[in-house]
Design a protein around this nucleic acid. Sequence first.
DNA 1: CGACAGTTTGAACAATCTCAAGCCGCGTGG
DNA 2: CCACGCGGCTTGAGATTGTTCAAACTGTCG
Lengths: 231, 231
Amino acid sequence: MPTAEACAVCEARPFSICAPLSTAELAELDRFSTTLHLPAGATFVHEGDPADHCFNITAGSAKIYKLLPDGRRQVIGFLFTGDFLGTATRGPYGISAEAMTPLSLCRFERTSFRAVLSRLPALEHALLDRTADELEAAREQMLLLGRKAARERVASFLLSLSRRAVRLGRVADPVQLPMGRTDIADYLGLTTETVSRVLTQLRTEGMIRLNGTSEVHLTRRAALESLCEGA
Amino acid sequence: MPTAEACAVCEARPFSICAPLSTAELAELDRFSTTLHLPAGATFVHEGDPADHCFNITAGSAKIYKLLPDGRRQVIGFLFTGDFLGTATRGPYGISAEAMTPLSLCRFERTSFRAVLSRLPALEHALLDRTADELEAAREQMLLLGRKAARERVASFLLSLSRRAVRLGRVADPVQLPMGRTDIADYLGLTTETVSRVLTQLRTEGMIRLNGTSEVHLTRRAALESLCEGA
DNA sequence: CGACAGTTTGAACAATCTCAAGCCGCGTGG
DNA sequence: CCACGCGGCTTGAGATTGTTCAAACTGTCG
């Protein structure tokens, strides 16, 4: 179980909402956290369930999504090391969350987390900033979903993954796709077939190079960038 | 210009982030606010400009949107009395905002607003809750844009407007559309023609009744509700 | 009363989806 | 070590939804 020490050596901390906390504050927060380890494929948040917990991802990647009753699915986002989950609503969870790789996370009881928030203004600040960033990203995605063509969506997606990798201290160029074509399609509002076709097309045009199915080289990044914006 | 008195009689307050503030706190916040009145059509936030201010809408309605270089537009949302604008980024504005009707608003300098936030935890709480709600709404809209058919989008839109009217203390049934077909289309990721066709179709099927171009009766609300979810 | 902006309607078109095969890589078991 | 089988990915052809382009309508405001 977590200890102040666990936080002290936590590799996710520089990327997490707990980054700005002092050692004492960290201990205060840590008192209410539980460490979990989940296998790939585990669904750990169910849309519609009472939102009892919130989570901080310390290792691995996950996806969050919403479903329509007939099974249509919209992937809302992909979560990586340092991402926080559970801010959004005070009622039931608005999304479901599933591990894409083996996943490590800190879990907090929502009620105690909210109480801690009041005691640690730095934490509340960080959470507000983070939530605002997520909102900004969601708006960008609304633009993508509402107004971009398939090619533009895929190009935007590849670049955003690349930028994210950089933020996490990884390389910008060979982009890793930890998710399958179905997840990409459900994230971009397309079908797997269309995603596949567009990738082949971009490859043919020399804008990308595919290494197997889950690694992409962004040759001609500039061209991809102008594609994003509709060139 | 605003005074503590202005806040005391403000009709938007019950719907605003300042609702939970005490009289003293209100005075503290008010010290940094300016009241503005804008004509319909005025653009008061420009995407990409440095985000110097944030705003609280006290009367009227506005729209926020994002543009692609070639002019394609995604309307991100419609703002009404009590809505707050400007949380999102710490860098430049991520959206543009335009008055749809004559608009009254409280304007805050971003830097002083952030300073006041630190002094008024109740305000920061309210803002975090509000931002989380917006995020939840944005995610719902991502589902709509990525996965719903045109009929479903329009039905969802009418119902969400109706629910919003109720929250503002207005009637649920004759829904007012303060925006034109173009704005609706750009909000739903469709064209005006498609919006128009769907509305006619819903009218023909007896699900709605149109009173002129900007008032809609939701006859058979239940049918609309199941349409939203894909029935 | 007339003009104009916004809305509605119509017909042809195009992007993406659907349905259907085939392919590839990989893990398993012989 | 290699053949097999399975899941995910790719490719193809045809169907569909929504778009585009164009014209007619409406009602609002000088």
